[in-house]
Amino acid sequence: MNGTRGFLIRRLVTLLALSVTASAVLFTAYYGVSRNTRAVRDASAPAILQVAAANEALDESYEYAKRSLVGGTGDIEGLGEDYRTTLSTANQALAQALKSTTAGPPARQTLLTVTGLVSSYGDLVQQAYVNRDNTALRDAYLGYAETMLRGDDGSGHRARSGDSDILARLAQVEKKQLRLLDQQTSFGWLLSLAWWVLVPAACAAPVVLLVRTQRFLRLRFRRRFNPFLLVATGLLLLTVPTLAVLTYQTQDRLAQARTSLRQTNIGKAPDTTNKRVSTKMEETHWRTGAVVWIPMGGVLLAALVFVGLQPRIDEYRFRAR
């Protein structure tokens, strides 16, 4: 009899330890996917879109200024409403980007530098307007403004190593932000290891041991089923695939958000892109909230194991030795 009681005690301790391990592994694996959904929605997406909007607006502002001055409408319309609107949009986007950039202090310093350069760029365009009747001076100031904005080769929208023009600096900030976005939305080898190896192993072990314990109790105590251990087994078998499906759905929406934020034209309609990303992240809200239920499920699992085995252990407590 002592041998049976000792066996049951050891089995109880083992099952409790495996329950804690399985819960911890599931929590870590699930949290690893769900933890970044809010950061993508509230931080990364707005930061990326603000920089992209500033980039797009500045690029358009030069075209509007040049059209007004070279096209001959400057005497009537000045630099034009389109120019003023796009420059104002760029300044507002830069101000917001300074508050919310996700690329760290170096990116913030770059944005501060860009803000100063944009002011100088605006002054150069204004000088071109002031000298609109002098073609040589007008074109010279416009050329200086374009060089400050786009670089010596007049091309924007891409970071060129060593370049210090406005659009190149913004592209460098955006590149850093996108690198962080990739880290937030990628599954990665650690999560792959967790879901393909650690979770199956950590959850299969207690399931197998629960089934073997059920069989032992049926043979030893002549009871067909132990309802508590049966529920514990079902809880594990139901929880793992459910969380796996929720993880897949969350990761899929993170990948869709990454795809949306990596489009080359997001600066043209930042509000539309932001709404699309926010909608995708809102769809994950209740899924990410499921992470708090995993520790509760672990406590329930341990309680079911304890309640299922403790009465059988007690049956041997006062028996004759």
Rank of each mutant, 00 (worst) to 15 (best):
T259G: 06
T110G: 11
R11Y: 08
G72H: 01
T110Q: 15
N131F: 15
L137K: 14
K275P: 01
A205H: 09
A303F: 10
L94W: 00
A17P: 01
F225D: 06
F27L: 09
G156E: 01
L230T: 13
K66C: 00
D163K: 04
D133L: 10
P270H: 06
Q177P: 08
T147I: 14
A159P: 15
G188N: 06
L238E: 07
R10M: 03
R5N: 12
L167R: 02
G151C: 02
Q214S: 04
Y121P: 15
S120K: 12
V125I: 12
L309C: 12
Y83G: 00
P206W: 05
T264A: 15
L18A: 07
R169G: 01
A97M: 05
V207L: 14
E60G: 00
V299N: 06
L230N: 09
A204V: 11
L309A: 08
P106M: 07
T102D: 04
N36S: 14
G156Y: 04
D271K: 07
L79F: 11
P105Q: 06
T4M: 11
M281L: 12
T89C: 00
R10T: 09
G156K: 01
L15K: 07
P46Q: 06
F318G: 09
D153L: 05
T264E: 14
R41C: 11
R5I: 09
R222T: 14
P270E: 05
Q263P: 00
T73Q: 09
S260Q: 10
S61L: 01
T284L: 08
R276I: 01
L94T: 02
L309K: 12
L15A: 01
V118P: 11
V70R: 02
G162Q: 13
I9S: 12
R224N: 15
Y64F: 11
A39K: 10
L117I: 00
D75I: 03
A57T: 04
L8F: 09
R253T: 05
D139T: 04
A303R: 07
V291Y: 08
S186V: 07
V277Q: 08
Y129V: 11
T14W: 03
T284D: 15
E283T: 13
A201L: 15
A65D: 02
V292R: 12
D133Q: 10
F216I: 01
S186I: 06
T242W: 10
V231H: 05
Q172R: 07
T89H: 04
S155P: 00
L193W: 10
R35F: 03
L246I: 02
V245S: 06
R10C: 02
K99C: 01
